[in-house]
Computed example of a mutant assay.
Amino acid sequence: MNISSNFDSGNIKVISQNDPLDIQLEINKDHESDFFQWFHFRLESTPFLSHKLHINGLAESAYPEGWEGYQAVASYDRQTWFRVPSKYEEGSLVIDFEPEFSHTFFAYFAPYSYERHLDLLYWAQSHDVCEIETLGKTLDGRDISLLKVGEPSEDKKVIWITARQHPGETMAEWFVEGLLHKLLDDEDPHAAALLSKAVFYIVPNMNPDGSVRGHLRTNAKGVNLNREWATPSLEQSPEVFHVLNKMHESGLDMYLDIHGDEALPYNFVAGSEGIPSYDDRLQNLEESFKSALLAITPEFQDEFGYDKDAPGEANLTVASCAVGEAFKALAYTIEMPFKDNADLPDPYYGWSDRRSYQFGQDTLAAIVNVVDKLR
Score class of each variant (00 low, 15 high):
Glu335Asp: 10
Pro345Ala: 09
Leu285Ser: 01
Lys328Met: 01
Phe268Trp: 09
Leu252Met: 04
Pro265Glu: 09
Ile275Arg: 09
Asn267Glu: 12
Lys246Asp: 02
Val243Trp: 07
Glu249Tyr: 04
Ser320His: 15
Leu225His: 08
Arg227Phe: 00
Glu273Trp: 05
Pro298His: 05
Leu293His: 08
Tyr332Leu: 15
Phe241Cys: 01
Asp279Tyr: 12
Asp340Cys: 07
Gln361Gly: 11
Tyr348Arg: 14
Ala319Ile: 11
Arg354Thr: 13
Glu249Thr: 13
Asn224Arg: 11
Glu228Ala: 13
Ala292His: 02
Asp307Arg: 09
Ser250Gly: 00
Asn224Ala: 10
Ala326Thr: 07
Gln358Asp: 07
Glu228Cys: 12
Gly251Val: 02
Ser352Cys: 12
Val223Asp: 05
Glu299Tyr: 03
Tyr357Gly: 01
Ala329Glu: 03
Asp261Thr: 09
Phe300Leu: 00
Ser356Ile: 11
Asp340Tyr: 10
Ala263Glu: 14
His248Phe: 14
Ala331Leu: 05
Asn315Lys: 04
Gly324Trp: 04
Asp309Gly: 01
Ser356Asp: 11
Glu249Leu: 12
Trp351His: 13
Lys339Tyr: 06
Glu303Cys: 01
Glu228Pro: 00
Gly350Gln: 14
Gly251Met: 05
Glu235Thr: 03
Tyr278Gly: 08
Asn284Ser: 11
His248Trp: 12
Thr363Trp: 00
Leu344Thr: 14
Glu286Ile: 02
His248Ala: 11
Val243Tyr: 12
Arg355Ile: 08
Pro232Ser: 00
Thr317Val: 02
Met336Arg: 10
Lys328Thr: 07
Lys339Val: 11
Thr317Arg: 06
Leu344Ser: 13
Trp351Glu: 05
Asn284Glu: 10
Gln358Ser: 07
Ala331Ser: 15
Ala326Glu: 14
Leu234Gln: 03
Phe289Trp: 06
Ala263Val: 14
Ala342Glu: 15
Leu344Asn: 14
Pro337Met: 09
Gly274Lys: 11
Gly274Met: 08
Phe241His: 12
Phe304Gln: 13
Gly350Leu: 12
Asp309Glu: 12
Tyr349Ile: 06
Val323Cys: 05
Gly350His: 14
Leu256Phe: 15
Arg227Val: 02
Gly260Glu: 15
Ile296Gln: 01
Ser352Pro: 10
Trp351Ala: 06
Ser356Leu: 06
Glu228Met: 06
Ser277Thr: 15
Asn224His: 13
Val269Asp: 07
Ala230Ile: 00
Glu303Gln: 08
Thr297Asp: 03
Ala230Cys: 00
Ile334Asn: 06
Gly324Ala: 08
Gly271Glu: 11
His248Pro: 03
Ala322Ser: 15
Ser352Arg: 11
Tyr255Gly: 06
Pro337Gly: 11
Ile258Met: 13
Lys246Arg: 13
Glu287Val: 00
Glu286His: 07
Ala342Pro: 04
Gln283Glu: 13
Ser356Phe: 09
Glu287Pro: 00
Glu249Cys: 03
Asp302Asn: 00
Leu330Ser: 04
Gln301Cys: 00
Leu294Asp: 09
Asp353Pro: 00
Arg355Trp: 04
Met247Asn: 03
Gly350Asn: 15
Tyr255Lys: 07
Ala263Tyr: 08
Pro311Asp: 13
Asp343Asn: 15
Tyr255Phe: 15
